Simulated assay, not measured.
Amino acid sequence: MAQKISLADWQQQRGRSADSVADGNNDSLVYSTDKGKIDKARPTEAGGTAYPDGAVRLRREKKGRGGKTVLTISGIAKPVSELNELCAALKKKCACGGAVKDGIIEIQADKRELIEQHLSQKGFNVKWAGG
């Protein structure tokens, strides 16, 4: 049968003091009755990455989206804030919804010509990819 020890004794055996855990300096602590669930620091959002040829890809997707058509725009090497501004402008132009996920802009409509025209006016080299 295992011997029962107090939390302070266990922490001392592991080389940690009770004060470091109370201060929140314990990265392996998942739940504490003192503070509740401890959330880990989230990494900062990454912007988009460019393709080697410098072109922006417009891809039409339906798979895994319940049959709804979504245009994904990838290859824009800008920070997240600029991608959000561009996404907002495209959503207004197309009168539809959309979002920025993992550096890729998703527009919830099949208006490739309109989006290609708008991106070309902004100075992007646009290529169609996918269906």
Rank of each mutant, 00 (worst) to 15 (best):
T72M: 06
M1A: 10
K4Y: 12
S28G: 01
G131Y: 14
G98P: 00
T44F: 14
D34I: 07
E61S: 02
M1N: 01
S17V: 04
K127P: 06
E113M: 10
A18R: 12
H118A: 15
G48H: 05
I105R: 05
V21M: 11
L29Y: 01
L58I: 08
S81M: 02
Y51K: 08
K111F: 06
D102P: 08
G131Q: 10
E113K: 05
A18I: 09
Y31Q: 00
G15K: 10
A109P: 00
A50C: 05
K92T: 08
I107E: 02
Q13V: 00
V126Q: 07
L90W: 05
K40N: 14
K122H: 08
K37Q: 04
D39G: 04
D39L: 14
G98F: 03
G36Q: 05
D34N: 14
G36H: 10
Q3F: 08
P79S: 12
E82L: 13
N26I: 09
Q11R: 15
G130L: 03
G66M: 10
Y31N: 00
G48P: 03
A22E: 12
I5H: 02
W10L: 09
L83C: 11
V126C: 08
T33A: 06
V126D: 05
K127Q: 14
I5M: 12
I105E: 00
C87R: 15
D23Y: 04
W10P: 04
R16A: 05
W128R: 11
N125S: 11
K93P: 01
G123T: 07
V100W: 02
E45Y: 11
G15T: 02
F124V: 02
C96F: 01
P52L: 07
K35I: 13
K68R: 07
L7Q: 13
A89D: 15
H118T: 05
K101Q: 11
Q121S: 09
A109V: 10
S20E: 13
R16M: 12
A109Q: 02
K92N: 12
G103Y: 01
S17H: 11
K4Q: 15
C87P: 06
A8E: 11
F124Y: 15
M1F: 09
S120E: 14
A41Y: 11
A50T: 09
L58M: 08
E82D: 12
A89T: 11
G15W: 08
T69S: 10
G97I: 08
V70W: 01
S120T: 15
E45P: 02
G48F: 04
A95D: 15
S17L: 03
A50P: 03
V80L: 00
E85V: 12
R59C: 00
K78R: 08
Q3I: 12
S6F: 04
A46G: 12
D34K: 15
E116M: 12
T49P: 03
K78W: 01
Q13Y: 05
